[in-house]
Each structure stands twice: as structure tokens, then as C-alpha cells.
């Protein structure tokens, strides 16, 4: 178990190192930030001074080393655009994105699993057919279109939910939450559905397919032959086996929820990290872009690690391989 954990952590560190290399290379391929920052009237001496201040006059290897060391301490330098520390910028935007991502993830996972189970168990009912057909919409429509459609129906036509922004927020000192006010919660509904709908349909279809496969196995037939009730067979024996592959996909999808928040945040003008990233791209604010890249990579790596550990918890066959009973 410990060896497994160490191995996985080393792998994670390696992945982060590679991502750092890619993030770092951004600095050298998206133009000279000094020209953008100082404008046309600056003298050569001004530019050299700023270059030295930003550390851009040092050899590439030294720059990379500094970048990695700083990144490891969550230090990503100064934003070229707002001249504030990148870490501060991200931290003040992070609560908005995390709240949106968490709520839409819960929505997607809970609804996805429930609907998946329902459509697998009541395969022939008209409601299951309807859900399956409707889920095609979730799979095939692009996120921004779903967002715009939801805004049109619920904000413009019906006027029941806000079309943009986060509503009122409460500052908890270290965390700026929209979950404690009515307007904050109401503002969350449309973006959360928009962001979660694709994941929901994906999870639902996966749970359904896995469950159907598990239901046709011998051990489910034997469980029935032993006289276990339908509930026990379906929700205890079948569901646990269904969840093994589903956990992996859910884990990976949680990562994409945070990554794809960019689009939803743009559509709903949600003041999150994704919107920050879009602005950074527009202004070639490389430190912010690099930091965002590193953050997303970290989210994926951590989630993968957690998924691997969950496997251990769910599947006794893996535990046995790790030594001991």
C-alpha cells in the first residue's frame, strides 16, 4: 500500500514537472511581454531594467529552475497586466470557480448515477427511453449553446433566474461565498446546470451501460437464485461492481469540469478563474496563463491520485496484490 502510494506520488511529481516545462515555454513563444507592458515611448534602458526586474535576462535554464522552485511554493510572479502577484489574483477568483464546479459536479454525479441506475433497471419503460433520447442532447450540444438557451428560457422569457454574475456574496475572510445568500444561490443554478449537463449525461450513459453488463453476470444471477431481494441484488451487489469503472470516469470528468468552466464562466460572466484566464490570453499575460495551466494540471493529478486510492477501497482484488490479506 505504501509502496503503491509512493509510486503514484512520484508519478504525479513527474507529470507536474512536464507541465511546468510546457507552461514555462509559454514565456518564450507568445511574444515579448516587455514590449506590451511598456508601450512605444519606452527607451531601451527602460526595457532592460524591466527585463532584469522580471528575471528575463538570465539564462533559460536558470529561469526555468526559478520558475519551478517558485511554482512549488505557489509563487508565479507578477501579472504583466495588473502588476499584482498572480497567486493573489487566482486566490481571489478561485472560490467562485470552485463553488460553481463543486455544485455542478454534485449535480452531475448524483443525477447521473440515479438516472443511470433507473434507465438500466427500467430499460423498457417509456420514461427510460425518453431520458436516453434526451441525454443525446446533453452529449451533442456544445456547452455555450446550452448556456445561451438556458439564459433565453429562464432569464429572458420566464425571467425567473438571473442571466449573469454571482449575485451577492458573503466574505468569510478567506473565502468569498455565494452559497449563503438567496441571490447567490439563484445565480448559481443556470451556470451549474450548463457546466454539469454534459458530465451528467456522460455519467448516466456510462452507469447504465456498466450496470446492464453487471446485471448479466453469473454472480448477479446466482444472487437472484439465492433468493436475495431485488433491492439487495440491484443496489448492493450490482451497483458496487458498476461503480469501479464509473469512479475513474467521474474522477477525470471532475477535472474537466474545472477546466471547462472557462466557457461557462464566459457565457454567464462568472467572476472565476476561467474568466481570468480568458482575459489573460487576450492581453498575453503569460504568468497568469502559466499559473492557470499549472493549477489545472494539479487538479487532474490530485484527482487521479484520489481515484487510484478509491480503487483500493472498493476492490479487494487490488488490496490483495499489494501484499497481505
Amino acid at each position: 500500500m505504501l509502496a503503491f502510494l509512493i509510486q503514484r506520488v512520484l508519478q504525479a511529481i513527474f507529470v507536474m514537472f512536464v507541465v511546468a516545462l510546457i507552461s514555462f515555454s509559454l514565456f518564450h513563444y507568445v511574444g515579448d511581454p516587455v514590449l506590451n507592458m511598456l508601450g512605444q515611448e519606452a527607451t531601451e534602458a527602460d526595457r532592460a531594467a524591466l527585463r532584469a526586474q522580471l528575471g528575463l535576462d538570465q539564462p533559460v535554464v536558470v529561469q526555468f529552475w526559478n520558475f519551478v522552485v517558485n511554482a512549488a511554493q505557489f509563487e508565479f510572479g507578477i501579472s504583466y497586466r495588473s502588476a499584482r502577484p498572480v497567486t493573489d489574483l487566482i486566490l481571489e477568483r478561485l472560490p467562485a470557480t470552485l463553488e460553481l464546479a463543486t455544485i455542478s459536479a454534485i449535480f452531475a454525479v448524483v443525477m447521473g448515477i440515479l438516472l443511470g441506475i433507473y434507465t438500466a433497471l427500467r430499460r423498457r419503460s417509456w420514461l427510460a427511453h425518453f431520458i436516453m433520447t434526451a441525454s443525446l442532447i446533453g452529449v451533442s450540444l456544445p456547452t455555450f449553446l446550452i448556456g445561451v438557451l438556458l439564459i433565453y428560457v429562464f432569464a429572458v422569457e420566464l425571467g425567473v433566474l438571473p442571466a449573469f454574475g454571482r449575485g451577492e456574496t458573503v466574505d468569510l475572510g478567506w473565502w468569498d461565498t455565494g452559497l449563503l445568500t438567496t441571490s447567490g444561490l439563484r445565480s448559481l443554478i443556470l451556470p451549474a446546470i450548463t457546466l454539469g449537463l454534459f458530465q451528467l449525461t456522460l455519467i448516466m450513459r456510462l452507469v447504465r451501460a456498466e450496470m446492464l453488463e453487471v446485471l448479466s453476470t453469473d454472480y448477479i444471477k446466482f444472487a437472484r437464485a439465492r433468493g436475495l431481494s431485488k433491492r439487495v441484488v440491484n443496489l448492493r451487489h450490482a451497483l458496487k461492481n458498476t461503480m469501479i469503472p464509473v469512479i475513474t470516469i467521474i474522477g477525470l470528468q471532475l477535472g474537466t469540469i474545472i477546466a471547462f468552466a472557462i466557457i461557462t464562466e464566459t457565457v454567464f460572466q462568472w467572476p472565476g478563474v476561467g474568466a481570468l484566464f480568458i482575459t489573460a490570453v487576450r492581453f498575453v499575460d503569460v504568468p497568469v496563463m502559466a499559473a492557470y495551466l499549472m493549477m489545472i494540471a494539479l487538479v487532474f493529478v490530485v484527482i487521479n491520485l484520489v481515484v487510484d486510492l478509491l480503487y483500493y477501497a472498493v476492490d479487494p482484488r487490488l488490496r490483495a496484490q499489494g501484499g497481505g490479506k
Binding site: D218, Y219, I220, F222, A225, R226, L228, V314, P316
Partner: peptide
Amino acid sequence: RGRHIGMIFQDPLTSLNPL
């Protein structure tokens, strides 16, 4: 089932729930 009629299947490797 199980109380009055029992059943044993062909493949013991797949008849038991692995989890």
C-alpha cells in the same frame, strides 16, 4: 429461491461477487 429451490451454476469463478 434459496429457501425452497436452490441453484448451483456452472462456473464457480464467476458465481461469487468479487467485491
